[in-house]
Design a protein around this nucleic acid. Structure first.
Lengths: 135, 135
DNA sequence: TTATTTACCTATCTTGTCAATAGGTTTTTG
DNA sequence: CAAAAACCTATTGACAAGATAGGTAAATAA
């Protein structure tokens, strides 16, 4: 289940993509436009900055802007940096202590296949695909 | 993220499918074979009984058996009855108070598409597809 | 230079779910 | 009638989700 963190992150990124891509946009504006608590967004945007997806500028006239063009940002990236791994089961997460049953597990291939499906889906979509002109 | 409930449920169903499909198998045996706490499995199997996926028989010589043949049971059914809806985001869950933004939401179509993908994947797989002779 | 605006940082809180445990009651058969 | 099984209710501990609160540092416009 994709939580609000990931969903809000995508909405913030999309908001940045839609509103004057070159200048900085203060979080206050985004929060108002998206109707999300600014304080909560701060936590989420921090992850995006750390991931190198957006750039923040302090001080008056500051705000955030995309670090790359929307065509070069995949939804998968946004989700993994805010939600953690997209892996659908714990056994497939990168940090998973490998399960002792893994070798003989009859269900693991099923989860692995779904994992691939999920991964391909979200890394195959770019932020630009969500822009109004594309839809 | 698919939790242990759903994953254990699939393993129990598969265990039932592999071990003498017509007679009853006590949970004690399944728990030992799958190396899962019997007490925890009780909770999970209860959901499977309520869903009409397995049939329980009390008393000595009792146990559980599949209610239908493995070819007629989809993985999706098993998961939805033990985990709840497969919906990847809250806005798409059946009981969701419909979001006021839903009509204009630019990200909803993305989640909806992923929802379809997930649904089709798990309802397209049957328990029989996981049996060793199939793999 | 100073007030203002902004990002940035740390901590706390509440609620709910996950994963499991515990101890009992009822049902059925050998 | 005794054993073995399902079935039932309650509780627990740990952790994450979804925020909220209050402050510090940086940069600019006046």
């Amino acid at each position: 289940m994709i939580s609000t963190r990931g969903r809000y992150a995508v909405r913030v990124m999309l908001d940045l993509a839609e509103n004057n891509i070159d200048s900085c946009i203060p979080l206050k504006e985004i929060a108002a436009r998206q109707d999300i608590s600014k304080k909560y967004l701060e936590i989420i945007v921090k992850d995006l900055v750390l991931a190198g997806l957006v750039v923040g500028a302090s001080g008056k006239g500051g705000g955030y802007r995309l670090a790359r063009r929307p065509e070069e940002i995949s939804i998968g990236e946004i989700l993994e940096h805010t939600e953690g791994p997209l892996a659908p089961v714990a056994c497939l997460a990168p940090d998973a202590a490998s399960c002792p049953r893994a070798g003989a597990c009859e269900t693991l291939p099923l989860w692995a296949e779904y994992d691939r499906l999920t991964h391909d889906f979200f890394y195959g979509r770019r932020l630009s695909d969500l822009l109004p002109e594309k839809r």
